[in-house]
């Protein structure tokens, strides 16, 4: 979303929550498998996304960021109303497809992987479609895009729809992997974290950057948390366990924005270029 339409959204965490809750309620109400409910819930989230994107039809960049903060806060509040215990259980019997029970470890992993691969393929190919090109045009300059005959409002709505769809999908998969949904997993911090993944990976037109960023942050995170938490606990400072995480992530984001705006993908591209030209420098 950032790459294609050039806008920042800070409501991704909340939209993910919408997807997660919608998945569970749908699956319970209709007694269908969660696997079927996930895409439907994602579609629903897409509509929520379009609705939240309404202000941006008149506005650009930073105004949208603020609208999305407001939306995130309102949605967070709504979660706290519908789910005051911070726990909505996901019934195990719905995590099945036909007779196959999918909640155990290896199967669960394959299901999530399948969805993720499908979603990535879609996203990669989207960039080369008519819609993808329209999105890029709007991202570069929406006034100019309008002049060459692109329906900017429609394209922006589609962008929000797609971004909502992906957030919803992620939320649905989250609901699928846990035994209970806790809305504190969908706060503003979550949104910022996702933004950080994209920025570090490479906020370009290439989906692989975001993927790379997500993988790196997730693994780096776990490593940091296990090592540092132990270290701090040994020093008797376990209350500070999550402080380094904030400082490190924040500094990395700043460093990438200032020094390497293309992200990891940019670095990779330069490395590739170097070896292609080797032994000459150009």
């Amino acid at each position: 979303m950032i790459g294609l339409a050039g806008q920042i959204s800070l409501a991704q965490g909340a939209l993910m929550g919408v997807g997660a809750y919608a998945t569970v309620y749908l699956a319970e109400a209709l007694h269908i498998s969660i696997l079927v409910a996930i895409p439907i819930a994602a579609l629903f989230t897409a509509f929520v996304g379009v609705f939240l994107g309404l202000p941006s039809f008149r506005l650009k960049g930073y105004y949208l960021a603020m609208a999305s903060i407001a939306a995130q806060m309102i949605l967070e509040y709504m979660f706290s109303v519908i789910d005051p215990d911070q726990y909505t259980s996901v019934p195990e019997n719905l995590k099945a497809f036909g007779v196959m029970q999918l909640s155990m470890f290896p199967m669960q992993y394959y299901v999530v992987l399948a969805y993720a691969i499908l979603a990535t393929l879609l996203a990669v190919n989207l960039g080369r479609s008519a819609i993808g090109r329209a999105l890029k045009a709007v991202g570069d300059n929406d006034v100019a895009a309008e002049i060459v005959g692109i329906n900017v409002v429609k394209v922006k709505a589609i962008a929000f729809g797609i971004s909502g769809f992906y957030a919803g999908l992620a939320g649905g998969l989250y609901a699928f992997t846990v035994s209970g949904i806790d809305w504190t997993a969908f706060t503003l911090d979550t949104s910022i974290e996702y933004l950080a993944m994209v920025l570090i990976g490479g906020p370009g037109r290439i989906i692989w950057g975001s993927l790379l960023g997500a993988i790196l942050i997730r693994t780096g995170w776990s490593l940091l948390e296990t090592n540092l938490s132990d270290m701090l606990a040994a020093l008797g400072m376990s209350v500070l366990a999550s402080a380094p995480k904030y400082v490190v992530l924040g500094s990395i984001v700043i460093a990438f924005l200032v020094l390497e705006p293309e992200g990891l993908i940019g670095i990779l591209r330069r490395v590739k270029e170097y070896f292609r030209l080797w032994p000459y420098s150009y």
Binding site: I192, S251, I252, V253, V258
Partner: peptide
């Protein structure tokens, strides 16, 4: 703005 978000995280830490 994204960079100030990074600063938000650093300051929180």
């Amino acid at each position: 703005m994204a960079a100030t978000l990074g600063a938000y995280y650093v300051l929180r830490g």
